[in-house]
Design a binder for these strands. Structure first.
Lengths: 128, 128
DNA sequence: CCGGTACTTTCCGTACTGGTTAAATACACA
DNA sequence: TGTGTATTTAACCAGTACGGAAAGTACCGG
């Protein structure tokens, strides 16, 4: 099941996850939805700071919010994490074969008595 | 195979991945190691900019570098991506069970106000 | 209306990011 | 030695991120 998302979106998602507080909030919410005050309680920072973190998480779709009286309960929405997992999984073959690549490259850079005059490296560039 | 890394390290890794150029570099390197000039070639930015991106990737262990004459070839090192995949996978039950956690929470948040004054909001200095 | 609770917004300081240009470093080769 | 190539460092700048304090908004209940 591929849930690939736009490249910029993926950047924003990674940026949202690049913060221990925000990841801790997601952990908290995976146990069930909570209000802002409930979420803030374990953290040593002010409510506005938490509010801003929630805004970041909401912006990338990692949480959804509703309203009930004064309360603005938050629930986790993990779909973007599936995209993150999918993105990382594409490198599984790389981390499972974790050797050789540098050696192979050095072999190309430093040919033996091979008649290759310069280390002009071919650009096997199938990216973009 | 669990490759959990510590929380700050994970933040740095996510931060390193929160940039399309750096992710494109990883894509390029998954096809094989390359020198800095080879890596820079497809990008519309100067060499120093690429050099800094490589430094970020190296710092979190996403690439390793060696030296050969003037060349500083880079190779991908995908182990941190396994940690990222593992971290995201922990939320699989959440994204697979798309039942409504919000509803359940709203049910718990019944209109009974429960007026308990809780002014406990100590602010230490846990900057992240 | 008022007062209280639950948040959010605004403003501000500080620090980091991502890019630039110019200069420095490192190495190979003639 | 000097020149060319590969790459990094330094200095700088605009924009953004993360925190706090204070003020603003929204809703409820009397």
């Amino acid at each position: 099941m591929s849930v690939a998302i736009d490249d910029d979106r993926l950047s924003e998602t990674f940026a949202a996850l690049a913060n221990t507080t925000r990841r801790a909030i997601l952990t908290r919410l995976s146990d069930g939805a909570a209000t802002v005050n409930e979420i803030a309680e374990p953290f040593a920072m002010t409510l506005p700071a938490i509010s801003k973190h929630l805004k970041v998480l909401e912006r990338v779709g990692l949480i959804v919010r509703s309203r009930h009286a004064q309360y603005r309960p938050c629930a986790i929405e993990a779909t973007p994490l599936e995209a993150v997992a999918d993105w990382a999984e594409q490198y599984r073959p790389v981390w499972e074969a974790r050797f050789d690549r540098m050696d192979e490259h050095l072999r190309r850079l430093r040919p033996e008595p091979d008649p290759e005059p310069e280390p002009t490296m071919e650009k096997a560039n199938n990216h973009d």
